[in-house]
Simulated assay, not measured.
Amino acid sequence: MQIDVEALTVEIAGARPVEEATLRAGSGQVVGLVGPNGSGKSTLLRCVYRALRPSAGAVRVGGEDLRAMTVRESARRLAALPQEAAAEFDFTVAEIVAMGRLPHQGPMARTTEEDRRTCEGALEGVGAGHLADRGFLTLSGGEKQRVLIARALAQQPQVLVLDEPTNHLDIAQQLEVLALVRGSGLTVLTALHDLNLAALHCDLLHVIDGGRIVASGAPHDVLTPVLLAEVFGVRAHRVPHPETGAVQLLFDRLPSA
């Protein structure tokens, strides 16, 4: 299912951390949002998953305004994994994943056999079925991310929004998590810090700087030395990945003026 962000603007205390941002993630695409720290990536995504109300603009899922839906309706279409998505209490993994079924249950509904099968399938799908009885707080960073992705998949959304899903993970865990996301078949909108990971795993990239989308397109077309110098303040050397051919980047400091 397609998701559209249309002329989104956020105004906070007179500042505009996001201004007239427009982007699209087509059905089944993995679309990355990249930019320097403080550029507005997380603020934009918080509007997409309804943690923040924009001052102007709209987010549409399948052509329908997300804000016109009830929270339950929107949660059936879109699941999110924010940066701060951590459990404060030591629920078991099975209990964490079961939370993904709440949008499909009534206020007094009990967990059904279908709910249990869906949760078990989501855990197995991310390779974490053996963790079901473990306490969430006992897991490694990579295991926690797998479980949180399983919770999102148990929600059975059509769109998945991820804010820095590889943050604080080692490189093997980063690759595993992004492979899981890529293999989900969902429409994915994700903010990523690592430009090389973004180039490897995303179909399209949107570059945000100062709250505005300044470039959009395929990674090879967007991640140019000129743009990287202007937006990130670095000199970039482009090389092809030896197996996939995807553009990869080597960085230097810009020469002094």
Rank of each mutant, 00 (worst) to 15 (best):
R72N: 03
A87L: 12
L8D: 12
T118N: 08
G121Q: 09
E124R: 15
I3Q: 09
T244Y: 15
A172W: 10
G245Q: 10
R151L: 06
L78P: 00
H104T: 04
R238N: 01
T43H: 14
R212N: 00
G14F: 01
T118E: 10
I213K: 00
A85L: 09
T118A: 12
L137D: 13
D65G: 02
T118I: 12
V147N: 05
I3W: 08
D252R: 13
L153Q: 02
L169V: 08
G233M: 06
V30F: 15
R72G: 06
A109F: 02
A68N: 05
R77Y: 06
R238K: 11
L123K: 03
E164H: 15
I96M: 06
Q158S: 14
T70M: 06
E143P: 07
V61Y: 03
A154R: 02
V159N: 10
A85P: 01
V61N: 08
E120D: 13
A21Y: 00
G185C: 15
A25V: 11
A122Q: 01
A7M: 10
E88R: 09
L249C: 07
G125M: 11
G211N: 12
A246Q: 14
L178W: 12
E113D: 15
V59C: 06
R67T: 07
G127A: 12
D170N: 06
I96D: 02
G183E: 15
S42I: 13
Q105I: 03
V239K: 05
T138I: 05
G38P: 06
A58Q: 08
A179F: 00
T166R: 05
M99K: 00
H193M: 11
R253S: 11
L52K: 07
L33D: 11
R77S: 03
Q174L: 08
I213N: 01
E73S: 11
K144C: 14
E11R: 15
V59P: 04
A154G: 05
A236I: 08
G38Q: 07
V18H: 04
L33R: 07
D194P: 14
V222A: 12
Q174R: 13
R146G: 06
L195P: 03
D209L: 07
L227S: 04
A122F: 02
G26E: 14
G100Q: 02
L148T: 02
T92G: 10
A25Y: 07
A87T: 06
R24F: 00
E88V: 11
T111G: 04
S74F: 04
V234A: 08
R46A: 13
L8K: 00
